[in-house]
Amino acid sequence: MRKILDIAKKELSSYFRTPIAYIVLIVAAIVFNMFFFIIVDNSQEASLRDVFKVMEFLFVFIVPILTMKVFAEEKATGTMEFLMTTPTTNNQIVLGKYLGSLAFFGLMVAPTGVYYLILEIFSSPDRATILTGYLGILIEGAFFISVGIMCSSWSKNQIVSAILSYSILFMLYFSLSFIKYFSGIAEQIIRYTNIMSHSENFLVGLITVSDLIYFISGILFCLVITRVSIDKRI
């Protein structure tokens, strides 16, 4: 466990050793703010539902950039060889890196807590819905990150790894737009695997077992695949 945290800490601090981290944090904050005020101003509604929708949409674009380096960089520079010849298990490496990226993601989302405070001060928001909304956003982000890390474990090249995770996330996120071209079992599969059909409920205050299972099994699946591709030295 200590080692997982050591790796997570290194992973998190490695984000801050490149300008990308700051750019992402600043851009995310600016965009979230913009939408928050536009949405609140237009809807006159004391809810963050539409803000969450904008956030999850942006995560599809941000997360691959955050995760592209996670394994690709270590493999390209040869530090993977270092990690794997220290007395550290591959599970510890995968979990540590996952945790580190999650922590950075948490830092990105944390400032939006201010919106909740603003709503609290000027109106009486539906606290339960905001809470489930946050849970939804966080678990969804955790899933995106696991997809990104999995793709990063497939290539030495950060660009390739980013393109792979964009492909997967776009497919899972926008697939409902193409649903009319499918029918029968294919349609059902697309509907089930679509991310939005599982994040919706959180945003309106509902936590369902099936949504939780979707995200948690998705995360576990990606982490297991990551572990396998590390084992295979792909």
Binding site: S14, T79, T85
Partner: peptide, 10 residues
């Protein structure tokens, strides 16, 4: 290893 396994920005 053959290429020193260093984290260049540490």
């Amino acid at each position: 290893p053959e290429n020193p396994p260093l984290y260049s920005n540490m």
